[in-house]
Write a protein that binds this DNA or RNA. Structure first.
Length: 481
DNA sequence: CTAGGGTTAG
């Protein structure tokens, strides 16, 4: 166009600016200035978008600031730009100042929260949207379902599913996959599978989320079965599919099959790749915990601290390695190190959803309005455990306490409080679902197995990485986690 | 003509 000496107009600029690399964006920016399109609102908005998409939030904001008129679209573009780069609060300030809001702008804000680890705020905003006169659409429910999946709130997720049905929101690929993901992360594989089976228009991402769902729950054979089905249908598995089935093989101890699938990756031209070093080091530390190799664990830890890879999780892991060997000086050393490096142990909590309300528990929490009954139930549970000859696994407790105190502190682990709450507030025989922010501790794992046996209840626990289905005294993870 | 969706092990 330029070589033919035809002058691009504002529309040309804004359309080319969509999906263009940063350097071309900059070039187009100066072109637009030369041709006098700098005050065109479409061009300006597209430029804000280009800069924000390439993490140049400063340039984006500079442009946004000098725009003579702020339209709904330009404000939404800036909100999206902010949230894309993690400036969720700044986005919210703009959002709150808007005089009118349409569905896209609500979606941008809700999704911004959801994609940046603030699912509860996403859900609060979603409820506010329902009160407003703007109707949610497919995009809204996908963002809201993703938030439900993160928090693990099955009842709220179900409500949104019902809302989809009764408000003529199309159950397209995106909505369907979000539903599958929400159901499996909220502990209901049955519902996830039901949505999966009902969907007519499935793509590889839909299949992946079902495969990953099965793998996450420890249903390895189902995951492999589904993988075979998708291959027979001629679908090309992706790296995520392989993550799902390889972890399924690992959890089920299917070593030979694991290698077969690993070699199959070649056929689909998928390169083995590792994209998160710190987590891999954490895995190595876990292995050293299992094998009690303190010296190597220390070496790794020094390295991690040096590289700024150390997280509260890796410190706690090292501390547990010391604690398991009775090295309380080591434990104290790690504590001091955590303090000096400004890393806090992430407080563990467990939550349970009862009647659409989420009840959250910290260790030793007394804030619940039914605390008295919950603690009475805990005592009851202890009696059951004692009668079954249960020995507490007190090694796992982080602190240097006497044996009696250690056991006391195990008894009030947040997971046990949540289970006690579930036992007193749901019908006998119903499944109890718990969500935890950390990994399950070995003691709580053993206790939950026994409680499932004694009460005849199925207890489903979602921890930081995966699901545990406790049924009749055993767990779907096969005690491997 | 401008803005917005889904899956991710250890």
């Amino acid at each position: 166009m330029l070589t033919q000496n035809i002058e691009p107009n504002a529309f040309t600029f804004s359309s080319i600016l969509k999906a263009c690399p940063l350097e071309s964006g900059k070039a187009l920016h100066s072109q637009a200035l030369k041709l006098g399109y700098e005050s065109d609102t479409y061009v300006q908005t597209a430029l804000v978008d280009v800069y924000a998409r390439h993490s140049d939030i400063v340039s984006a904001f500079k442009l946004f600031e000098i725009m003579p008129e702020r339209s709904l679209v330009s404000l939404t573009t800036m909100i999206t730009g902010y949230t894309m780069n993690g400036y969720v609060q700044e986005a919210r300030v703009l959002f709150d100042r808007m005089e009118e809001r349409d569905v896209v702008c609500w979606n941008a804000m809700i999704d911004g929260y959801s994609q940046h680890g603030r699912p509860n705020e996403a859900l609060v905003l979603f409820r506010q949207m329902l009160q407003s006169k703007v109707k949610p659409n497919e995009v809204t429910v996908v963002a809201a379902l993703s938030a439900c999946a993160q928090v693990g709130v099955l009842e709220s997720g179900r409500w949104i599913h019902a809302y989809v049905k009764s408000n003529r929101i199309q159950l397209n690929k995106h909505v369907g996959t979000a539903l599958i993901d929400m159901y499996s992360k909220s502990g209901s594989l049955e519902d996830a599978r039901m949505v999966f089976d009902q969907m007519r228009d499935k793509d590889v991402i839909t299949w992946n989320s079902m495969v990953v769902g099965y793998a996450m729950h420890g249903f390895s054979l189902e995951a492999l079965q589904l993988f075979n089905e998708m291959c027979e249908l001629g679908l090309q598995p992706t790296d995520i599919t392989f993550i799902g089935i390889l972890s399924a093989c690992a959890n089920a101890g299917l070593v030979a099959e694991g290698w077969d699938y690993f070699h199959l990756m070649d056929k689909y031209r998928i390169e083995p790749k590792i994209d998160s070093d710190p987590i891999l080091w954490g895995t190595l530390l876990t292995a050293y915990r299992i094998h009690g190799n303190v010296r190597l664990a220390e070496k790794i830890m020094d390295f991690l601290a040096e590289q700024d890879f150390a997280t509260s999780g890796t410190y706690v892991l090292l501390s547990n390695i010391y604690a398991a060997g009775g090295d309380w000086d080591g434990v104290a050393k790690v504590r001091a190190l955590m303090k000096s490096s400004g890393v806090d142990k992430e407080p563990g909590y467990s939550s349970i959803e009862v009647n659409n309300k989420v009840h959250e528990f910290l260790t030793g929490d007394m804030k619940h309005h039914k605390s008295k009954e919950i603690y009475r139930m805990l005592e009851e549970m202890n009696k059951w455990l004692e009668a079954h000859g249960y020995m507490p696994l007190s090694d796992v407790v982080l602190h240097n306490l006497g044996e009696v105190e250690k056991q006391k502190s195990l008894v009030v682990h947040s997971e046990r409080l949540a289970i006690a709450c579930g036992l007193i507030s749901t019908q006998p025989g119903t499944t109890i679902k718990i969500v935890k922010n950390l990994r399950v501790c070995p003691d709580c794992h053993a206790v939950t197995k026994l409680v499932s046996k004694i009460t005849g209840r199925k207890i489903i626990v979602r921890d930081r990485n995966r699901f545990h289905h406790f049924v009749e005294g055993s767990c779907s993870c096969g005690d491997f986690w």
